[in-house]
Design a protein around this nucleic acid. Structure first.
Lengths: 191, 191
DNA sequence: CGGTCTCTTGACGGAGTTCAAAGCTAGTGG
DNA sequence: CCACTAGCTTTGAACTCCGTCAAGAGACCG
C-alpha cells in the first residue's frame, strides 16, 4: 500500500485527508497465478494497481487466438480502460500470470476522487500522458521493427519478466506466434 | 476558433474569463499542403488543433522509410506529444498533407492553463482517455487483423480522407508498403 | 510415474516485401 | 493547346519472413 502512496507523492503533494480517503477505498488483494480479474463481456467495475507479480490484459480474436495488449508489473495500473472510459462491456480479459499482489479500486470511487480532491487530476494527467507515450512507442516499434528487434526491446523494457512468464504470452504481445519466437530465441543464442 | 470553444463546452462548463484567456493564447493559422510544423530533432514548443484539412505525424526509420503515427483531421489535436511530455527533442515530424487551418498553442502556455483554470484538467483528462482508447484499438487491430481488414477499418474511421491524401501515406499508417496497398485495393474492387 | 503445460523442430504455404519498370494524372510552361 | 514533367499508382517476378499444422522433446507437478 505504501508503494502507491509513495508513487502519488512523487507526482503531487498529498494532504492527510486525501491520503486517508485513498486508503479507505483501496483494497489489497493477493492473487494466485491463473486468477481472472476481468472477463470479456462483463461490466468492468475495478481498476488494479500492481505491487507484486505480473498480470496481463488480452483479447481473443475470431479464430480463438489471444493477443496481449499489456503486461502489468510493479507500479503499473491495469484494467480494461476502454470499457471503463466508454462505459461498455469488457472486450478484454485480465488475468494473473504469476502470484501477485494488487490494490483494487472501484472505478466509480476512483472517479469520485477527482471531484473530492481535484489535485488528483494532475496525478491522473501524468499517468495518462505516460500511458500515451508508451503506446505511441509501441505502435512505432510495430511499424518499423522486425519481430527480432521488437523482442530485443521487450527484454530491455521488462528485464526480469521473461523468467517468470511463458514465451507464448510474450509472442502474443509482440504480434508473432510462439514458434516464431522460439526460432528468434535460438538465433539470438548463436550470436 | 468557435469549433474549439464549442468542443470545450461539450465537456466542461467554460467561464467567460477562461474563454477569454484561451482566445488570448490561441493563434489561428492557415497552412498549405506540404508545410512542415515540426521536424525531427527540434525542440517542440507547439500543439495544434485542426479545424480544417489534414495533417500527419510520422517518423523516419534507419532505412529512410516513413511510418505514420497519426492523421489529424477536424477537431483532432496533433503534435509530438512524447517530446512535449518528456521534454525531449522531437522524434517525429508533423506536416500538412492538404491545405489546412489549425489553431496553434504554445505547449507551455497550454500547461499554464491547468494552473490558472483547474477546471481544464477534466477536459484534458477526457482527451487523454479518448486518445488512450484509440491507441489501444489500433494496437489490437495491428495484432489481430490482416492488412486488408485494417484497410477496411481505416476507410470506415476516416470516410473521406482517402480522396484527398496519397495512398502511400495510408500504407505507412497501416504498416504495409504502397505496393501491397495497391494490390489490396484491386482485390476490393473485384468484390 | 503419468499427465499437462511449454518449448522446439520440420515441412510447407501464403501474405507481404523488394526492386524495377511502366502507366496514369494533373499541373506547368512554351 | 500540346508537350513535358513530377508525383502517384500499378504491375511483375523473385524472394523472405512468418504462420500453419503436426509431431516430438523437456519440464514440472501431483
Amino acid at each position: 500500500m505504501q508503494d502507491l502512496i509513495d508513487k502519488i507523492k512523487g507526482v503531487i503533494p498529498l494532504t492527510s485527508e486525501a491520503e486517508t480517503h485513498i486508503l479507505s477505498i483501496a483494497k489489497e488483494r493477493s492473487l494466485s497465478k491463473g486468477n481472472a480479474l476481468i472477463l470479456e463481456g462483463q461490466t468492468v467495475r475495478k481498476t488494479y494497481f500492481v505491487t507484486k507479480g505480473c498480470l496481463r490484459s488480452y483479447c481473443i480474436d475470431k479464430d480463438g487466438k489471444e493477443h496481449t495488449l499489456q503486461f502489468a508489473i510493479k507500479d503499473w495500473w491495469i484494467s480494461d480502460f476502454t470499457a471503463i472510459y466508454n462505459h461498455e462491456p469488457a472486450s478484454l480479459n485480465v488475468e494473473c500470470i504469476t502470484d501477485s499482489h494488487v490494490i483494487e479500486f472501484s472505478a466509480k470511487e476512483l472517479d469520485d476522487v477527482f471531484r473530492l480532491f481535484p489535485e488528483f487530476e494532475a496525478f491522473q494527467r501524468k499517468n495518462l500522458e505516460r500511458h500515451v507515450v508508451s503506446l505511441h512507442k509501441r505502435i512505432l516499434n510495430q511499424l518499423q521493427l522486425t519481430a527480432s528487434e521488437r523482442y530485443d526491446l521487450f527484454l530491455k523494457q521488462y528485464p526480469d519478466i521473461e523468467r517468470h512468464i511463458p514465451n507464448y504470452h510474450i509472442a502474443s504481445f509482440l504480434g508473432i506466434t510462439q514458434q516464431s519466437l522460439s526460432r528468434i530465441r535460438i538465433e539470438r543464442v548463436k550470436k
